[in-house]
Simulated assay, not measured.
Amino acid sequence: MRTQILKAIGGTLTALALTTVPAYASTTATAGSTAEAGAFACGWDPQGAVARYNHCNSNVNVLIRVERTFDRPGYDQCVRPGITLLGYTYDIKYAWYKGLC
């Protein structure tokens, strides 16, 4: 349900993100500990200017698929437990669990 709603308003979010994006240092940095990650929903989180993936299981690393906007190719990324910054919200269309890594 959340995915359908976000896709429906994706154009609006993209327009807003383009006007309010701060400098961003790294698209693969891990931001915070697993304890801090508890404040965010598990999985893909497009809130704010920077999209993130919150891997809530503290025992294993997982492979996620990151889809990008503007016809850019997506990529697979192995993430550790906690929050992983993926890039600007306007550049990341969606990210989801793909398997273990």
Rank of each mutant, 00 (worst) to 15 (best):
T30V: 06
L6A: 00
N61Y: 08
S33Y: 12
G87N: 13
P73H: 07
R80L: 09
G11M: 12
Y53K: 03
V79H: 02
R52T: 05
C56Y: 06
R2T: 14
A49E: 08
I64F: 02
Y97N: 10
N61L: 09
G82M: 10
I83N: 12
G87M: 10
G32I: 05
D45M: 01
F40R: 14
L85S: 03
H55Q: 13
L85H: 05
V60R: 12
T34L: 15
I5F: 15
P46W: 00
T20N: 15
C101K: 08
K98F: 09
E67G: 00
A51K: 00
A15R: 15
I64R: 05
L13N: 03
N61K: 15
L13R: 04
I83A: 06
F70H: 09
T19S: 12
D71Q: 13
G32T: 04
T20E: 14
P73Y: 03
Y97K: 14
K98P: 00
A95V: 08
A25C: 09
K98C: 03
G43M: 09
A29R: 04
T69K: 14
R80C: 00
G48A: 03
Q47K: 06
T89V: 11
I9W: 03
T12Q: 07
A8W: 12
A25Q: 15
G11W: 15
T12D: 06
D45E: 01
N54P: 04
K93Y: 14
E67V: 01
C78G: 02
N57Q: 14
Q47S: 14
D45K: 07
R72Y: 11
S58P: 12
D76C: 02
T27K: 05
L13G: 01
S26A: 05
L13A: 00
Q77P: 01
T14Y: 11
Y97M: 11
T12F: 08
R2Q: 14
V60L: 08
G43E: 04
W44M: 10
L100Y: 13
W44H: 12
I9S: 01
R80E: 14
R2S: 09
L85P: 01
V62R: 07
I92S: 03
